[in-house]
Simulated assay, not measured.
Amino acid sequence: PGHDLAILVMCHHNIISTGTFGWWGAWLNRGMTIFYQDWPKPNSTLASLFVKDEFFLPYWIGMS
């Protein structure tokens, strides 16, 4: 995992899932990041606990 994270950090672009491993790779490299913006599903239990602005950085690009 350490080598994989180091490779992610060296990338210029990231397409990440909703998991924390990709999130840390994207956050550490500060490059262009694309994420799935329709997560969590609206009106779900997680959506009521989750603040997107605190998880996804403002310069990351959301795609649905």
Rank of each mutant, 00 (worst) to 15 (best):
P1R: 06
P1F: 09
P1V: 05
G2S: 05
G2Q: 06
G2E: 11
G2K: 01
H3A: 10
H3C: 07
H3G: 09
D4P: 00
A6R: 08
I7Q: 08
I7M: 09
I7F: 05
L8F: 10
L8K: 07
L8E: 09
V9C: 10
M10P: 00
M10I: 03
C11R: 08
H12V: 00
H12P: 06
H12Q: 13
H12D: 15
H13W: 05
H13N: 08
H13E: 04
H13G: 00
N14M: 13
N14G: 07
N14P: 01
N14V: 04
I15Y: 13
I15P: 00
I15Q: 11
I16Y: 13
I16T: 12
S17R: 03
S17G: 14
T18Y: 13
G19Q: 10
G19H: 10
G19P: 05
G19I: 13
T20I: 15
T20Y: 14
F21A: 13
F21S: 03
F21R: 00
F21T: 14
W23G: 02
W24I: 06
W24M: 11
G25H: 02
A26R: 00
A26L: 03
A26C: 06
W27G: 01
W27K: 15
L28V: 07
L28C: 12
N29P: 11
N29A: 12
R30F: 01
R30H: 13
G31D: 09
M32I: 11
M32N: 04
T33F: 04
T33W: 00
T33E: 05
T33R: 07
I34G: 01
I34H: 13
I34P: 01
F35K: 02
F35R: 01
Y36M: 08
Y36D: 07
Y36K: 12
Q37H: 13
Q37D: 15
Q37A: 15
Q37R: 15
Q37L: 03
Q37C: 13
D38V: 10
D38K: 15
D38W: 08
W39I: 09
W39P: 02
W39R: 12
P40T: 12
P40E: 12
P40N: 11
P42V: 02
P42M: 01
N43L: 05
S44Q: 02
T45R: 12
T45G: 10
L46S: 01
L46P: 01
L46V: 10
A47M: 06
A47R: 04
S48Y: 09
S48W: 06
L49D: 02
L49H: 10
F50V: 12
V51I: 08
V51W: 04
V51T: 08
K52H: 11
K52F: 03
K52A: 13
D53I: 01
D53S: 14
E54M: 10
E54T: 03
F55W: 14
F55P: 00
F55G: 00
F55A: 07
F56Q: 03
F56Y: 14
F56L: 09
L57E: 07
L57W: 14
P58I: 09
Y59W: 14
Y59K: 05
I61E: 12
I61F: 09
I61V: 15
I61L: 14
I61S: 04
M63I: 12
S64E: 13
